[in-house]
């Protein structure tokens, strides 16, 4: 990401309900941001607007070639396919594909490579969704409560791996856990 993402006077409305009203912010390249706030305050709406998935008023200006990777609130995996195939879907080249086994191992999923996603636990699916986002070529990584549902030991291991894999990335992450924001030394956006 060469230039900052400038959010100016962003308003998101569902019917009569304004979830975000006249919000402005600048996301600098190479920084990590933790979007925090009470449930229903509009955190997911904000990142959905940045991803261009929902209508809004105001402007979000960014590089024309901005490539986004995302860990959605839900895992959004193809259940009938293997874990590695789900990740390969977003790969554009052999170099990305060659990283899959290593990352699967780092994320404690080495024995899940060829297992169908429908046979995996919620925590395993979550980690596959994170690996998919990390491997896909991107210059903005968006994560919506990425470590939700992971046990403490796995959560720490996954957070360490994410930090290792994203040294210079621009990250926009939703979390309810201040320790996650501190772990990533994130700038907090309080909605």
């Amino acid at each position: 990401m060469k230039n900052p993402i400038i959010i100016d006077s962003l308003t998101i409305q569902y019917g009569d309900n304004k979830v975000i009203d006249n919000f402005s912010y600048t996301i600098e390249p190479g920084r990590i941001y933790a979007v925090m706030g009470a449930s229903g305050i509009g955190k997911t709406s904000l990142i959905n607007a940045v991803m261009g998935l929902i209508p809004y008023t105001g402007t979000i200006s960014c590089d024309e070639d901005l490539k986004i990777s995302a860990v959605f609130q839900e895992d959004r995996l193809c259940e009938g396919m293997s874990a590695s195939r789900n990740i390969r879907i977003v790969c554009d080249n052999k170099e990305q594909i060659s990283r899959i086994p290593g990352l699967m191992s780092d994320f404690r999923l080495a024995d899940c490579v060829s297992r169908k996603v429908r046979d995996l636990s919620g925590g395993m699916k979550r980690r596959i969704a994170i690996i998919r986002a990390l491997i896909s070529s991107h210059n903005l990584l968006i994560m919506d409560e990425p470590f939700k549902g992971l046990d403490e030991a796995t959560r720490l291991a996954v957070m360490n791996s994410v930090r290792k894999e994203t040294p210079d990335d621009t990250i926009l992450m939703i979390t309810h856990d201040i320790s996650e924001a501190e772990f990533f030394n994130a700038v907090i956006i309080n909605l």
Binding site: M51, G52, L53, K67, I68, S69, A70, F72, E74, R76, C78, I89, V90, S136
Partner: peptide, 10 residues
């Protein structure tokens, strides 16, 4: 939601 995933990941 899968279509949204496809859109975001181009």
């Amino acid at each position: 939601k899968m279509l949204e995933f496809a859109k975001v990941y181009r």
